[in-house]
Every structure is written in C-alpha cells, then in structure tokens.
C-alpha cells in the first residue's frame, strides 16, 4: 500500500536487524571538552563490526548531577556480535583511549546480569601501586598516573541488544540527501539508548549480503547505487541521484523503532521540495537477522 508523508514516499518494506551484545560506559573529565576527547577516541574506528570489531558511539551528554563523580561527562554505547569481542574491544579501548586521556574517568553506565571488565585488568598498569575502593557496593580502581589518579569502576553491565536498524534516504542530489540525513541525525540524537555509529551518523556505502568474490561476505548495495541504474537490477527511479543510509544500534527493539520514526519524520517535515523523494530500508530477504522494522508500522505506531 502506498504511503506518503508530506509528499515523500515511504516504501512498504522493512529494515532487517540482528542480535548483538551491548554495554554503556560513562566517561567523565575535568570538563566536557576532555570528556569528548576521551569518548571520541574510544568510539573512533567503531563504525561497523565488519571491520572494527565493535560499533560504538556517543549516546548523549551528561550533566554533573547525572555522573557518579559529579563532573561533566558523556555516555557511550558499544555493541558487538558476541560477548567475547565486546569484552576484548572494551578493555583495549579503555586502555588506549580513556586511561591515556588527561583527567578522564570511566564508570559503568548500565546494569546487567552479565558483568564485563572495565578496569578490572587495566588496574595492573598501576604496577602494584593501584588501590581499590568499594563504595556503596561498587568497586572502583585508583591507578596512579602522571596527571594524578585515574579512576575507573571495576566492571560494567553487558546486555542483549539489537544492531542494524536502518533506513535509506533517496534524493535527487547528493547535497539534498546529505542535508536530509543531517536533519534526521540531529533529531535522532535526542532518543536515548541508541547510537548511529557511522561517520556523522550517516553511511554512504550501504552493503548487501554476499559478493561475487569468495572472500567478501558483504559488498556494495548495487540496487541502490545511482550510477548503476542501467547496469543492475536497480531499486532507483530515474530522478534519484543519491542515497544515504542511517544505521541504528540500540538496547531494545522499541528504542530503535522510536529512533527510526523520529528520524524519518524529521526528514518528511522537510517536504519533497527538499529533494528527498523516497524513504526505504535495507531489506535483505531474511538473510541478515530476525528483527524486522517495518517502515509503515513504525510510522503508524503499530510496530512490535
């Protein structure tokens, strides 16, 4: 059935997402500038599990009232395909990005039955001078460093999560597609429990499952590549000149669905004059994962 929002067509399709393991870490520092330095480093090179091991991003800023140590901070979310990779990546990134960042401290941002190491092993950097403090049932490690002391909670929680929620923005020009994507990202950043892990929250190289090459398990989504309209089984109409994708990882199905709704509605509020003609989604025919985010249902508020 045809759906139009402000003259922008919403395809009757769905985004296909998969199970992940996720965690949240709270990073604080002397001021927001240094909290962002730490968080940006920790979530750097974490766009896709395909090549980075984890997908990570800054969820939101935290006020001094919201952080454990009363300093400015940010919360980050990190997702991986399995618990082992998530644990390994978290420890590596803690050691190279948070321990090294002046004034930064790290705390658990989520409870869960499963606990994974935050500073549990990092403490050995203290070479015997490290000390722990058990405060209100939580164990913290104090590691002496050259700027004073590095504080980290011993563990954080690990929960079941979902990755790969997405939608595609089909526009008449590259600037129009990107401008609409930026508007969507700004709106989606206000939704808790989700991240958009790609650069600026937007990905231009959407992929399909499989490839003609045996060693590749993902390759360019040729059906949505505008320069291949005549050379492949295209999904694009003649006026579409650029497609941008927004990928969402979240703690629950509902979080991702809400984020998609907010993002799509923000784009549709721009109207068809913005150059955006269609919204679609990455539908891989059931090859990718069990979670289906049906665009029409999400926008009608009936997705479950």
């Amino acid at each position: 059935m045809m759906m139009l929002l402000n003259n922008i067509q919403i395809d009757d399709t769905f985004a296909e997402a998969f199970n992940m393991r996720g965690t949240r870490v709270i990073i604080t520092a002397q001021n927001l500038k240094w909290a962002y330095h730490a968080a940006n480093a920790m979530t750097g090179f974490a766009t896709s599990v395909i090549g980075c091991g984890v997908e990570a991003g800054i969820e939101r800023e935290l006020s001094t009232e919201e952080t454990p140590d009363g300093r400015p901070g940010v919360s980050i979310l990190m997702f991986a395909m399995g618990s082992k990779v998530l644990m390994q990546q978290l420890e590596t990134r803690m050691g190279q990005c948070i321990l090294t960042c002046p004034t930064a401290a790290a705390f658990s941002g989520i409870d869960g039955e499963d606990k994974i190491s935050l500073g549990k092993h990092l403490r050995y950097f203290g070479d015997g001078f490290q000390t722990s403090k058990l405060i209100d049932g939580k164990r913290y490690w104090r590691i002496p460093v050259m700027d004073g002391e590095f504080i980290t909670e011993e563990t954080t929680g690990m929960v079941r999560a979902i990755g790969g929620g997405n939608f595609l923005i089909l526009a008449t020009s590259q600037p129009a597609a990107l401008a609409a994507a930026e508007v969507a990202i700004e709106a989606m950043k206000k939704v808790p429990n989700v991240i958009m892990p790609f650069p600026g929250g937007v990905v231009r190289s959407g992929s399909k499952v499989g490839s003609k090459y045996k060693t590749m398990f993902a390759s360019t989504n040729d059906a949505f590549c505008p320069t291949l309209k005549g050379a492949t089984n295209t999904e694009l109409s003649p006026e579409i000149e650029s497609v941008m994708e927004i990928v969402i990882d979240g703690l629950t199905f509902e979080d991702i669905a809400l984020s998609m709704k907010v993002g799509i509605e923000a784009i549709c509020n721009l109207g068809a004059d913005s150059g955006v003609k269609r919204i679609s989604a990455g539908n891989y025919g059931g090859k990718l994962g069990p979670h289906l985010f049906k665009l029409h249902d999400i926008l009608n508020g009936s997705n479950s």
């Binding site: 454990p68 009363g70 403090k133 405060i135 004073g148 002391e149």
Partner: peptide, 13 residues
C-alpha cells in the same frame, strides 16, 4: 598535597 577525584565518590556515599 593533591586533589583526589575518588573522594567525590566517597563523600557522596
């Protein structure tokens, strides 16, 4: 003499 950040956690408790 130092400013120890962990004391904020302790005092909060």
């Amino acid at each position: 003499t130092h400013t120890l950040p962990y004391l904020s956690l302790l005092f909060k408790s």
